[in-house]
Computed example of a mutant assay.
Amino acid sequence: MNVYLIISGVLSAIAAILHLGCIFFGAPWYRFFGAGEEMALMAEQGSNYPTFITLGIFSVLSIWSLYAFSAAGLIRKLPLTRLALIVITSIYLIRGLAGFTLMSMPMGRSPEFWLWSSIICLTFGIFHGVGLKKQWAKF
């Protein structure tokens, strides 16, 4: 059993659930998690835009969680698991690194948002990467 991929799946699932929380609890959650004042205001005004964007992120994170669980052997094997994990790991690592460069030009978000979200994404990417390396020969 690949504990790194299990942890990776759990981390992505938690992130997905937190995104659902933003939909259900609205503007205060969007603000707390750093989605930006514009998203929070749209949520307060009843716009569907924040919901659709957040549901999209929830869906992606949920699928990523399933792929990690699949590679770990917790659920049935999903198609293109190795390729999916390479892509997922790369996205987490690239997003994590890119966020540090955005701290100086936050684009509606605080530098703290970019710092913490980058640390989180790098952590997720590292767990995925270690899990992928340990599982490589078993694909």
Rank of each mutant, 00 (worst) to 15 (best):
Y30P: 09
K77D: 14
I14E: 13
L74P: 00
A16M: 02
P28N: 14
S90Y: 14
F58T: 11
A27H: 14
G36M: 03
F33K: 02
M39V: 07
T81K: 09
I75S: 15
G56L: 02
F32S: 15
I88M: 15
V87Q: 04
R95I: 06
Y49F: 14
G36D: 04
P79F: 01
M39E: 06
W64N: 06
I63Y: 10
A71G: 14
S59P: 04
Y67N: 02
I14Y: 15
C22E: 05
A72K: 09
I86D: 11
E38F: 11
L66M: 11
L20T: 04
G34M: 00
Y67W: 07
S62D: 00
R31L: 13
L41V: 10
T89M: 11
M39P: 01
R82W: 08
P50R: 00
R76D: 15
Y30C: 03
V87T: 08
T89C: 04
L61A: 08
Y49H: 11
V87L: 06
G73A: 07
G26Y: 09
I23R: 00
A71M: 15
A15S: 14
G26C: 08
L74W: 09
L83H: 08
G46S: 07
V60C: 01
L78G: 08
P28R: 09
T54D: 03
W64A: 03
G34R: 03
S90D: 15
L85P: 03
L93N: 14
I14W: 11
V60L: 14
Y30W: 08
L41T: 10
F25V: 14
F32M: 15
L55R: 04
R95N: 04
M39Y: 08
A35S: 06
E44G: 07
I75P: 07
A16N: 07
I86P: 09
F52H: 13
I91K: 10
E37C: 04
P79W: 03
G26S: 08
E44I: 02
I63M: 12
A68Q: 12
I53P: 00
Y92F: 12
I88G: 08
I23W: 02
G34P: 05
I75C: 05
